[in-house]
Design a protein around this nucleic acid. Structure first.
Lengths: 130, 130
DNA sequence: TGGTAAATTAACTATTGAGTTAATTAACCG
DNA sequence: CGGTTAATTAACTCAATAGTTAATTTACCA
């Protein structure tokens, strides 16, 4: 698993690290500040290891400032994720359309009476598409 | 790492599994057909383990048909990935804009002569944004 | 210059992931 | 029935991940 995209996906496969990224959208902060919300569930060395995983995945950049290590979000790596997933969008929108069409047939007044009764909830325009 | 999104990201953190997903966009195929392109580098049981990882991540659905196991792409799990990454889009587009603005200042005819010479390639409209 | 703060490194443990070969299940087919 | 195909399970190895505590580095600061 040496390729860059795999490294990025692996880094994102952890709720602690995703929370750290979310925090970084508010601006650069030190490692200890990044770690702070998690110190009730893990030690500081454990948190700095998470930071290092994000760094190696190219998701954040660590600089130096005296003893502190201000970290900055590196959103370009996330663009690669978005670019990878984008071609699949047509597929999930298509399967939504199929569901939508199916729901139309079973809720249509002119439909036959052989309707699976429980499928009726959540009609068109339920806010999911796009 | 028990949450669904982490499972999905972990499943995507492997080039073999991503290639399997890509293959599935062409339509449903059996496990052995999914495995075939990789049998020069790994055994069949190894490949079926990859399929199982994708299945547990909700990325594919396996059905039965005699001895065969037709697999179908389950694009909804990818929608979750797209939804997660989407809020970050503003950040990478913004950092692109900053680069773009910087490149404009150093390539602008009226700019001062203190120009990092090698930064000049790849001017505006290089096709990256969106 | 001695103490303190920020972060990392070392050394270790436990769990999970990815792969192997061999054996087994399940269903078709002649 | 007996053989073959498709896929999985078993049992095992090896490497990587995630965590721990203790020690160390680095730089500020009074």
């Amino acid at each position: 698993m040496t390729d860059q995209l795999s490294l990025t996906f692996a880094a994102l496969a952890d709720p602690t690290r995703r929370a750290m990224l979310a925090r970084l959208t508010e601006g650069p902060i030190n490692v200890s500040e990044l770690a702070e919300p998690f110190l009730d569930t893990m030690s500081l060395p454990a948190a700095t290891k998470h930071v290092k995983v994000l760094e190696r995945a190219g998701l954040l950049t660590k600089t130096r400032e005296a003893q502190r290590r201000p970290c900055e979000l590196n959103p370009d790596a996330l663009r690669d994720v978005a670019d990878w997933v984008e071609p699949y969008r047509a597929m999930w929108e298509e399967s939504f359309d199929r569901l939508d069409a199916y729901l139309k047939t079973i809720t249509d007044k002119s439909a036959k009476q052989s309707q699976p009764s429980k499928a009726a909830k959540g009609g068109k325009k339920d806010g999911r598409k796009k």
